[in-house]
Each structure stands twice: as structure tokens, then as C-alpha cells.
Simulated scan of single mutants.
Amino acid sequence: MTEPLLTADAHLRREGVTEGAPRPVVDVAVGVLIGADGRFLLASRPEGKVYAGYWEFPGGKLEAGESVETALARELHEELGIRVDPAQVLRWREQLVDYPHALVRLHFCKLTQWQGELQTREGQALAWASLPVTVSPVLPGAVPVLRWLEEEAALG
């Protein structure tokens, strides 16, 4: 399911598409890792990256010719040291986010199975969270996921 454009400004307001020259869309595979206890994994963005210190769901950019599933498996291994079978990646939702630095299409995938122990290979902090989250600040692109998880929990 594709959600409407989310504009990430200082107030996290929902707005229309940014005026001006069109920008290329950067595709990003994002893993919503859900543990057996129902908690989900959040990671802080490491120093030196845009939005350093913000909390997000792990993942990264697709490389040329790469599928969402393959990119997510590669990124989770690079960032967290875990192995994911691309065939077991469940695409969940998409969200287009207009950040000041880039127009990003986030491909959110739910994962309940992976192999290996979590490692912080990029110096990021990790937190197993439940709703409402207690870590902050949360990256604007991750905010809709928290709402979707809350909606699913309400449905039982």
C-alpha cells in the first residue's frame, strides 16, 4: 500500500509536493524487525549522517538493479550483522517522504525471522521498542510506521 507524500519539515506537517524543479526519487528498503514478544527494533542514525541521533527503522538505499528484498538483506547484514533470506521479506507499505536533502521512497518490509545476533556495525544505538515509543527524536519517515503499528494493534 502506498501512502501519500509526507513532507519532513521542522514541524512534521503534511503538505503537498514541494514546488520547484523535480528531484529524483531515492529508493530505500526499510526493515521493521518484530521480535517474538511483539517489540520492534529501532536504531539511531550514526554520527556523520543526515539526521544523526534520530531513531529509525534499519535499512538503506537500493543499489542499481537491486530489488527491495535483496537490498534489505544486504543492508541489514552490513548494519546489524544479521542474515535475512530475501524470499522471506514481506513487503508491507510504501511512503514517499520529501526531506530537505532528498525525495525518498521508503519500502517498508516486516521481518519476524533472521539469523545471527544483532551487532552495531556502524556505531548506532539499538532499542527494542513498543508503543508508545520512549526514544526520541524519531526520524520523520518512521513516524507513519508507528501509526500503522498502532492501527494494527487496535484491530487485534
Rank of each mutant, 00 (worst) to 15 (best):
L42N: 10
L41R: 10
E69Y: 03
G16A: 12
A102E: 12
A8T: 13
A29Q: 12
L96N: 07
P24N: 11
L76F: 04
A154M: 05
V89R: 06
A36Y: 00
P86V: 08
E152W: 01
G123S: 05
L139T: 02
L126H: 13
G59W: 00
P22I: 10
E94R: 15
A125C: 05
V135R: 11
E56F: 12
L90D: 13
L62S: 02
V143F: 06
A71T: 03
P58S: 05
I34C: 09
L106T: 06
E151A: 08
G59I: 00
V145W: 00
T18P: 05
E152T: 00
G156F: 02
L111M: 10
G16Q: 06
E151M: 06
G53N: 03
S130H: 13
K49D: 04
L41Q: 09
E47R: 12
D85T: 10
H77P: 00
V133F: 09
R74Q: 06
E69A: 15
W148R: 07
Q119K: 11
G65M: 01
P58L: 02
L76K: 09
L42C: 09
R23V: 10
T112Q: 11
A73G: 02
P4G: 10
E94P: 04
P4S: 11
V84N: 04
A73P: 01
C109E: 09
G81N: 05
R83Y: 01
G156S: 10
V17E: 13
V84R: 05
D37T: 04
D27T: 08
G38S: 05
Q113I: 10
L126V: 04
A102F: 01
R83D: 09
Q113D: 13
L126P: 00
V145S: 02
W55V: 04
L96V: 08
V145I: 15
F108N: 12
E19L: 11
D27G: 07
